[in-house]
Design a binder for these strands. Structure first.
Length: 462
RNA sequence: GUGGCCUUGGUAUAAUGGUUAUUACGGGAGAUUGUGGAUCUCUCAACACGGGUUCAAUUCCCGUAGGCCACCCCA
């Protein structure tokens, strides 16, 4: 052994320091190119499944309960769909879209979000002829060419809920409830931030007021804010620079610039939330970056308040004008998009801090097999157990009993079944209690009933 | 898009301008061959890539890529 080692390594050693000539050859002959990920992209591996699956299930369940129909639209659309909906001048459109010409010369974009596409589908398939409102949900990847950071990816998964064809504030409240439950059901404490940005007209008036106010204080502002003043005044409210805080605090609030109708709508939404006991915080600085929003806007954050700058877990609001903008008939609507990666990250962090773990696998038995004959018999029995809805783990790639039990142990399975030559001969099987180590030999025919009895007893004890 | 920090096996880490790059977890095999959760043995596996400085670079410098942080913005 040792000798082999000594021979092997010096050879490797020599190959490397052969300097420049060796380098060339090693990069072509020996060193096969390996591939990494495109920037900002990530794989979702089986180990993450315990986080991703529950979120999907919760979304699916909520959709079922609240009767949102599933819709999946293509991840590519005509680029102009997003330009129109999100608005020229928004960052998402101007600098974050994956946009290219396909082989036919069509201007194509990878969807940066899904509301526009859902509205497109709503119009295209004449869903306005269905009983209104039409409630839809989706789950899939979005693409934004941003500079990546933790919680910010270029491919990001979103679940979304959209309610189209109603002006009723109860729709806003329902969406917030759904989003709130999405986190609550999974055990992640969150807080809802909410605001109203009224109609475009009201917003314009407010913007003018805001600009006037800020202009007077221009000399106190940070550099960014001076830029924002001309470019994107609503963003002034988001400024984190310390020097701007006093100015910000005194700034006019959009609420005061809403008309009767808008105000009433907002009040109604809040009343519903009170009734639903969804805790929320009014945040008059909450505006949103996509052009299509009107009236209610909201975001949800982890209640821990940690997680860096991009900690918003989801965002949504009303978009009463979007359908019309996209060529449909006027259709009041509202929706919410939930970032799955951020939810996963927040939940992981929360679990870590609170020493919680995701529910363990619900495997009930491990099937250990010894020898060829046992193996083929095992497959049959396992299939029968599957028919009985008994969740059984096994690994036919390991042959020693020891290795198999080791696996059973690491999987935390309560019972192991052991089938060897002897048992095959006698048509029996061993049931081993993994905790106590007690084993009993039972007739294979009685296996299912025995197991079920044990599971029942186990359930009763708990 | 702007600025900054960072990059050693799958993960987490140690050290070093110069013979076999540390340790733990993890993966595989095993400790008299049909029994796990303890211990032990063996084994697998890394200096992101490219260029430069140097007699010599994983170590110093530059570039690229990627990650992270803040901003911009957003989920």
């Amino acid at each position: 052994m040792n000798k082999q080692k000594k021979i092997k390594k010096p050879v490797m050693q020599k190959a490397k320091p052969k300097e420049k000539t060796a380098n060339e050859s090693s990069s072509t002959e020996k060193g096969k190119k390996t591939f990494g990920l495109l920037r900002g992209m990530h794989d979702i591996l089986p180990k993450d499944e315990k986080y991703w699956k529950p979120f999907f299930h919760v979304a699916e369940k909520l959709a079922e309960h609240f009767q949102f129909g599933r819709i999946e639209t293509p991840i590519m659309e005509e680029a102009s769909l997003f330009v129109r909906s999100l608005g020229r001048g928004t960052d998402v459109v101007d600098k974050e879209m994956y946009i290219f010409e396909d082989r036919d010369g069509t201007r194509v974009a990878l969807r940066p979000e899904n509301t526009a596409a859902v509205v497109r589908a709503y119009i295209m398939h004449g869903l306005w002829n269905h009983p209104q409102p039409v409630k839809l949900w989706y789950w899939g990847p979005m693409f934004r060419h941003e500079r990546p950071q933790a919680g910010r990816y270029r491919e990001l998964w979103q679940a979304g809920f959209e309610t189209l064809g109603t002006h009723d504030p109860v729709a806003d409240a329902e969406l917030i409830l759904v989003a709130y439950n999405f986190y609550k059901d999974i055990g992640l404490p969150v807080e809802v931030h909410i605001n109203s940005i009224g109609t475009p007209e009201e917003r314009e008036k407010y913007k003018t007021e805001l600009v006037n106010y800020y202009r007077a204080k221009r000399s106190y502002l940070c550099e960014d804010c001076r830029k924002r003043l001309g470019k994107n005044p609503l963003r002034l409210l988001d400024c984190k620079a310390e020097q701007c805080q006093p100015v910000k605090e005194e700034a006019p609030q959009i609420i005061d610039w809403l008309g009767e109708e808008s105000k009433n709508h907002f009040m109604k939404v809040l009343e519903y939330l009170d009734e639903l006991a969804v805790p929320y915080t009014l945040r008059h600085t909450l505006v949103r970056g996509l052009d299509y929003y009107t009236h209610t806007v909201f975001e949800i954050y982890p209640a821990t308040g940690e997680g860096g700058a991009q900690s918003a877990l989801c965002g949504g609001g009303r978009y009463d004008l979007l359908a019309e903008e996209l060529g449909g008939r006027p259709t009041p609507a509202a929706g919410v998009a939930l970032g799955i990666e951020r939810a996963v990250t927040a939940l992981k962090q929360y679990n870590e801090q609170n020493k919680k773990e995701m529910p363990a696998n619900n495997l009930q038995v491990f099937f250990a097999q010894l020898g060829d004959r046992a193996r083929s018999r095992a497959l049959k029995i396992i299939d029968e157990l599957r028919g009985q809805e008994i969740k059984v783990a096994f690994n036919f790639f390991k042959n020693s009993l020891k290795a198999q039990l080791e696996l059973a142990n690491s999987l935390k399975v309560p019972y192991a079944l052991i089938l060897g030559q002897k048992e095959v001969q006698e048509s029996t099987i061993i049931i081993r209690d993994m905790e106590s180590g007690v084993q009993e030999i039972v007739d294979q025919k009685k296996l299912e009933s025995m197991l079920k009895k044990k599971f029942d007893n186990g359930a009763k004890k708990e």
